[in-house]
Computed example of a mutant assay.
Amino acid sequence: MTIEIRDYDPVWPGLARCAADELLEALPGRLTVVEHVGSTAVPGLAAKPVIDLMAATGALEAVAAAENALHALGYHGIETGMPERLFYRREGEPVAYHLHVVTASSWDTRNERLLRDHLRRHPADRAAYAQLKRGLADAGHDGEAYTRAKTALIQRMVDAARTGRGLPLVDVWEE
């Protein structure tokens, strides 16, 4: 499957808000917050048509026990091997959705949130990231090859964000 990169679409934040509201309503008391993360959450950044959402929970087990509510919304669990994270995907048009559920105790130090905020504040990095993504997509990279090829730039930006907040540096790949 080839990677499709689209120009930023100002409709993406509204789609993310609607999806976040649906999730909070479907899982009352199980999710403490849901935020739009990923490239579609960065105004002006070209992105794959995928809305990435990150949700915090007090207990991953509580969300896993309520997967029927997620299935009713079209989300299906995918095993990623990432520690302390549940991952769900919902197919759709004009966008698909990825839901990353993490522990509330790790919320403030999550790389996805830090990268989003960094890209919002650093136009040069945002432009470099867009150029890299378009180049990889144009070269025919797909799936994991596309993601892995972005690692060095993402690591540099996350390191800068973590350093700026006085956080220890960590590998962006959770394995």
Results as ranks from 00 to 15, higher is better:
31 L>M: 06
33 V>G: 02
33 V>H: 12
33 V>S: 05
33 V>W: 06
33 V>K: 08
34 V>T: 04
35 E>S: 03
36 H>Q: 01
36 H>C: 07
36 H>R: 04
36 H>W: 07
36 H>V: 10
38 G>F: 00
38 G>N: 07
39 S>A: 13
40 T>D: 09
40 T>Y: 05
41 A>G: 06
42 V>S: 02
42 V>D: 08
44 G>V: 06
44 G>Q: 02
45 L>R: 02
46 A>Q: 06
46 A>D: 09
46 A>S: 15
48 K>S: 09
48 K>G: 03
48 K>V: 12
51 I>C: 07
51 I>T: 01
51 I>L: 08
52 D>L: 04
53 L>W: 04
53 L>F: 01
53 L>I: 02
54 M>F: 06
55 A>N: 02
55 A>V: 04
57 T>W: 04
57 T>C: 12
59 A>G: 12
60 L>W: 00
61 E>S: 15
63 V>W: 00
64 A>Y: 05
66 A>W: 00
67 E>D: 10
68 N>A: 15
69 A>P: 05
70 L>R: 01
71 H>D: 15
72 A>N: 08
73 L>D: 13
74 G>T: 05
74 G>I: 01
75 Y>G: 11
75 Y>S: 09
76 H>W: 10
77 G>L: 05
77 G>D: 08
78 I>V: 14
78 I>M: 15
80 T>M: 06
81 G>T: 05
81 G>W: 03
82 M>Q: 14
82 M>R: 15
82 M>K: 12
83 P>N: 05
83 P>H: 11
84 E>A: 14
85 R>N: 12
86 L>V: 07
86 L>H: 00
87 F>Y: 13
87 F>T: 01
88 Y>D: 01
89 R>D: 14
89 R>W: 10
91 E>R: 15
91 E>L: 14
93 E>K: 10
94 P>K: 00
94 P>W: 09
94 P>L: 10
95 V>T: 06
95 V>K: 10
96 A>H: 06
96 A>G: 12
96 A>D: 14
96 A>C: 11
96 A>R: 13
97 Y>M: 05
98 H>I: 00
100 H>K: 03
101 V>S: 09
102 V>H: 09
102 V>Y: 00
103 T>C: 15
103 T>I: 08
105 S>L: 12
105 S>Q: 14
106 S>G: 04
106 S>P: 00
106 S>Y: 13
108 D>T: 13
108 D>P: 01
109 T>W: 09
109 T>R: 15
110 R>I: 05
111 N>Q: 13
112 E>P: 10
113 R>N: 03
113 R>Y: 00
113 R>F: 02
113 R>G: 03
115 L>I: 11
115 L>Y: 09
116 R>V: 03
117 D>F: 12
117 D>Q: 11
117 D>S: 12
118 H>P: 02
119 L>M: 13
120 R>W: 03
120 R>V: 15
121 R>C: 12
121 R>M: 14
123 P>V: 14
124 A>T: 12
124 A>F: 08
125 D>R: 08
126 R>F: 07
126 R>T: 05
126 R>V: 09
127 A>E: 14
127 A>T: 11
128 A>P: 02
129 Y>E: 07
131 Q>C: 13
131 Q>V: 11
131 Q>P: 06
